[in-house]
Amino acid sequence: MPIRVLVADDDPMVVTGLKYLLESDQEIEVVGTAGDGEEAIAQVRSQSVDVVLMDLGMPGVDGIAATRRIDQRPDAPYVIALTTWDVDDAVMSALEAGASGFLLKTSAPDEIIGAIKSVMAGDAVLSPRSTRRLLDQIARDPAVEQRRAAEVAVARLTAREREVAAAVAQGMTNAAIGAQLYLAEATIKSHVATIQSKLGVANRVGIAVLAERAGLLRPA
């Protein structure tokens, strides 16, 4: 069964371009398009959608608010934020609202298609470069309470789970983590699911944020 994608952007040229690009891949089906957040929410309600490519700067209900409302659904699709700029406040807000990652609108076609397939496989949607920028921004946040809460949450993880969490925060895929730790990819996938449950986060971005705040990426 193909991956069902909804494209939400208020620029008709962007929508047309993305639709043409995605439909060139036999594993992807564009099931709808939306010009604003309210329309995107309505489409998710009315049909089965696996992944939403969500522009953040749409009029009316913007992409951040739409992501938050979509993420509250029990059968919520993955949301990948589309942005003109690399990590900024809008991207951070979208990730906090439940987006599984983000893509620059200038991303190469194979990056966009690869991101959709990766998120469906439970893998990273952020490139290592973008992940590092995201975590650098979090590291500059002086909120002491958030750091303490992250440390308490991460303390629930086993030593192996902390290793996996740190690797996820570096933007590594399950396959790459497995190769590094000499474990099967299926084992890593199981670890990631357990880590998400223990930390109370919805996706790999949540793991990355807590790992940074708790200091897992700092030299011992």
Rank of each mutant, 00 (worst) to 15 (best):
I3L: 09
V144N: 00
L6P: 08
V209H: 05
A169Q: 12
S48A: 08
G60F: 10
L104T: 15
L135P: 09
T173K: 04
R129M: 02
I188K: 03
Q180N: 13
S46I: 00
P74L: 00
E23Q: 13
A165H: 12
P109T: 04
A42K: 13
S100Q: 12
R129Y: 02
P128T: 04
S107N: 11
R4L: 11
K189V: 02
A97S: 13
D86A: 10
A220E: 10
Q43M: 08
M54N: 07
Q26T: 13
R218K: 13
G63D: 10
Q196P: 05
V49C: 01
K189Y: 00
A159T: 14
L126T: 03
A153V: 08
R156T: 04
M92T: 05
E96A: 15
E111C: 01
M58Q: 11
T106K: 14
G215C: 09
G215D: 04
Y20G: 02
A184E: 13
K19M: 08
R213I: 05
L95W: 03
V79Q: 03
A176K: 15
T194Q: 14
E185G: 04
I112A: 08
L95C: 04
V52I: 14
R213W: 02
Q180V: 09
M172S: 09
T16L: 15
E27N: 15
V30P: 15
R148K: 13
K105D: 01
T173C: 00
A159K: 15
E212F: 05
I41F: 10
T67A: 01
Q196A: 06
I70S: 00
A149M: 15
E39D: 12
A193T: 13
G122Y: 01
I70T: 00
I112P: 08
H191S: 10
N174S: 13
D141G: 05
E151I: 14
S24D: 10
P74W: 03
A99L: 06
V61A: 07
G35R: 15
D75S: 09
G200A: 01
R4H: 08
P2F: 06
R73I: 03
G37D: 09
V164P: 11
M1I: 08
A211T: 06
V7Q: 02
Q72M: 04
D36M: 10
R129D: 02
G206C: 07
L157W: 05
N174R: 07
P77N: 02
R68L: 01
R162W: 04
V15D: 04
G101N: 08
Q180K: 14
P142R: 06
V31M: 07
V119Q: 05
I207E: 09
A143I: 15
V209C: 02
L183V: 11
A139G: 06
L95S: 03
E27V: 12
A40S: 10
A186K: 13
H191I: 06
D11L: 10
L53V: 12
R129H: 03
G37A: 12
E145M: 14
A76I: 01
R133G: 00
K117W: 06
V152D: 05
V125C: 03
P2T: 10
V201P: 10
A208S: 13
I177V: 15
I188Q: 01
S118V: 00
V87A: 00
D88Q: 09
A42I: 02
V152K: 13
A193V: 12
V154R: 12
